[in-house]
Lab assay of single mutants.
Amino acid sequence: TTYKLIANGKTLKGETTTEAVDAETAERVFKEYAKKNGVDGEWTYDDATKTFTVTE
């Protein structure tokens, strides 16, 4: 399944996707990606669109 991340960070803005077996796995991947890019904010997830959003 393809999951999408929308990053609304102070230093990183944009979108990326990952293939994962479930939302929990995708969330781990995206949180690691955000951490590597210095983004720390509020996370939301929309199951209907398989989209995570992080906003600083």
Rank of each mutant, 00 (worst) to 15 (best):
Y3D: 01
E42H: 13
T51F: 02
E56Q: 09
K31Q: 07
I6R: 06
G14K: 11
D22G: 04
A26E: 00
T11L: 12
K36F: 09
K36L: 13
K36M: 12
V39P: 02
V54P: 00
E56N: 06
A26L: 01
A7G: 05
D40S: 13
F52R: 00
K10S: 12
Y45N: 00
F30H: 01
E42M: 13
E32H: 08
T18W: 08
R28N: 07
V54H: 02
T51R: 03
W43H: 00
E42G: 05
K13T: 10
K4R: 13
V39M: 12
D47L: 06
K13N: 10
D46I: 04
T2Y: 09
T51G: 02
G41R: 01
F30D: 00
T53R: 08
T44M: 09
G41L: 03
T2C: 13
T25V: 08
L12I: 10
A34W: 08
K36A: 14
E27G: 08
A26K: 00
L12P: 04
D22Q: 03
N8V: 14
Y45V: 01
Y33F: 11
G14T: 14
T16C: 15
F52L: 01
E32A: 13
L12Y: 15
K31E: 03
Y45L: 02
F52D: 00
V21G: 09
T49H: 05
E42A: 11
V29G: 04
Y33R: 03
A7I: 15
A20E: 04
T17C: 12
T51A: 03
I6T: 04
T49N: 07
E27P: 00
V39A: 04
E24S: 10
I6D: 03
E27F: 15
L12R: 05
R28H: 07
D22T: 05
A7M: 15
T17K: 08
A20D: 03
T18P: 02
E27A: 12
Y3H: 02
L5Q: 01
G38D: 06
E15K: 07
G41E: 02
K35Q: 11
V21E: 12
T17P: 02
A20Y: 03
E24R: 11
T49W: 04
D40C: 12
T44E: 10
Y3M: 01
E19S: 10
Y33V: 05
D47V: 09
E27R: 11
D47C: 07
D47H: 10
K31R: 15
I6F: 07
A48G: 08
T53Q: 06
V21A: 14
W43A: 00
V39R: 02
T11N: 13
A34V: 10
V39K: 02
F52V: 00
K10W: 10
D46N: 10
L12K: 05
V54L: 12
V39S: 03
E15T: 14
E32S: 08
Y45I: 01
T55G: 04
D47R: 08
V29D: 05
Y3E: 01
E32M: 09
V54T: 02
A23S: 09
A48C: 09
A23V: 13
E19F: 15
E56W: 11
E19Y: 15
L5H: 01
T2F: 09
G38F: 06
T55H: 08
T1C: 13
T51Y: 02
A26H: 00
Y45W: 03
A34I: 07
N37F: 14
T1E: 11
Y45D: 00
T53W: 10
I6C: 07
T51E: 03
N37D: 03
A48T: 13
L12S: 06
K4W: 13
A23F: 14
D46K: 03
T2G: 04
G9F: 12
E24G: 09
A23G: 04
V39L: 15
L12E: 05
K50W: 05
T17W: 14
T51K: 03
V29S: 06
A26M: 02
F52C: 00
T17G: 03
G41V: 03
T25E: 14
N8Y: 15
A26W: 01
K13G: 06
T11D: 09
A48M: 11
A34N: 02
K13R: 12
T17F: 14
T55K: 07
T2E: 07
E56Y: 09
A48W: 07
A7V: 15
T17M: 10
F30M: 03
L5N: 01
N37Q: 11
T53C: 07
L12V: 08
V29M: 10
F52A: 00
T55V: 09
A20Q: 08
A23R: 14
K36Q: 13
F52M: 01
T44I: 08
N8H: 12
T49C: 04
E32K: 07
T17I: 10
F52K: 00
Y33G: 02
T11C: 15
N8R: 12
A34L: 09
A7S: 11
